Amino acid sequence: MIRVLLADDEAMVRAGVSAILAADEGIEVVAEAGDGRAAVEQVLLTRPDVALLDIRMPRMDGLAAASEIRRVRPETAMIMLTTFGEDDYIARALGDGAGGFLLKSGDPRELLAAVRAVADGAAYLSPKVAHRVIAHMSGGQLSRQAAARTRIEGLTEREREVLALLGSGLSNAAIAGTLHVVEGTVKAYVSSILAHLGARNRVQAAILAYEAGLVNRDG
């Protein structure tokens, strides 16, 4: 059972997200919070596997809450919930501990997939979010694409396959099943990829996979 904390200052949003999660028998919402400070407190009390955090909340926003949760309980994976127009917040959050980024207006199936992915140690980046972040960060999309492709040039063909699957939100176990190798081999590949790319975590690597064209942005 995947234990989830849900934090959003809008009660109706919390109710909607909670209902979606309740439809999955393998997911349980163990706590809810209406602001970032309460989210951190609930994480310490309930010790969830995953924290779903709205980016904009009173008392402490989602980014600050994510940073604090990473400090006090790094075992809890985090997913940031965002809306269109918050691209700068998403860009700031990259590399700051969150394992997933979702649009509130996105497909409910993405929410369930993201919770399962980050609980399993993978990164999950909504394709629409990835597309917007890449566009937001780029002084010119072509220049970023060229830079990303240069960064992945030193990867082996197998490492590129692993990076593409990582960018699609697959866990190490799922990648191992896809490539018909043992999970320990995938872990070694991921460590090598992160070191080669200079990426701090799987989310940064996933962004590079998108920028380099290894992942379908319209997925």
Results as ranks from 00 to 15, higher is better:
R71C: 08
I134V: 10
I90V: 02
T83L: 15
P48R: 05
E41W: 08
L163M: 08
G121N: 07
T156M: 07
E110S: 12
F101T: 14
R109W: 15
L5M: 13
V29Y: 07
D35T: 05
S126C: 04
L142M: 08
P58S: 06
D35G: 11
V43M: 03
N216W: 10
L44V: 13
S192P: 07
E75P: 01
R200P: 00
P127R: 05
T82C: 09
E211W: 08
L21M: 09
E211M: 10
V186A: 05
R109I: 15
G62Y: 00
S143N: 03
M137C: 13
V203R: 03
G106F: 06
A65T: 04
L21W: 04
N172P: 14
A188K: 12
K128R: 15
A195M: 14
D61P: 03
L208N: 03
E161L: 15
V186K: 07
T178N: 04
S138G: 14
S18H: 10
R217S: 15
D24I: 13
V162R: 12
R59Y: 11
V203C: 07
G36M: 01
V4E: 13
V115I: 12
R3F: 05
G36H: 02
S192M: 03
G106E: 11
D61Q: 03
E10W: 09
Q42T: 07
E32T: 15
A7K: 09
T178Q: 07
V118E: 01
V4P: 04
I69N: 03
G34F: 05
P74A: 13
L94P: 11
Y189R: 03
A93N: 05
R158S: 01
E28K: 05
V133L: 14
I69W: 00
M1F: 04
R144Y: 06
A114H: 02
E41N: 02
M60G: 05
Y89N: 14
A23M: 13
L6Y: 13
D24N: 04
E75R: 13
G140N: 12
I152Y: 01
A164P: 14
F101N: 09
G100W: 00
A148G: 06
H131F: 01
G100H: 04
A38C: 06
G140K: 11
E32A: 10
L163K: 10
V215S: 07
I69V: 01
M1P: 03
E28V: 07
R92D: 08
A7E: 04
I134R: 12
A122R: 01
N201W: 10
E25L: 15
R132M: 09
A205M: 04
V13D: 06
E211R: 08
R70Y: 02
G219N: 10
A11N: 09
M60H: 00
L194A: 11
V50P: 10
V215T: 12
M78S: 02
I134L: 15
P127Q: 04
K187I: 10
E211K: 11
D107I: 12
A66H: 04
R70S: 10
A174T: 01
L170N: 02
L142G: 02
L45N: 12
L21K: 05
E10N: 14
R217Y: 00
L112Q: 00
M137F: 03
V129L: 06
A205L: 08
R56D: 04
D24C: 09
D24G: 06
P48A: 08
L125K: 09
M12H: 09
G184N: 02
A91F: 12
T76Y: 06
H136N: 10
G16Q: 02
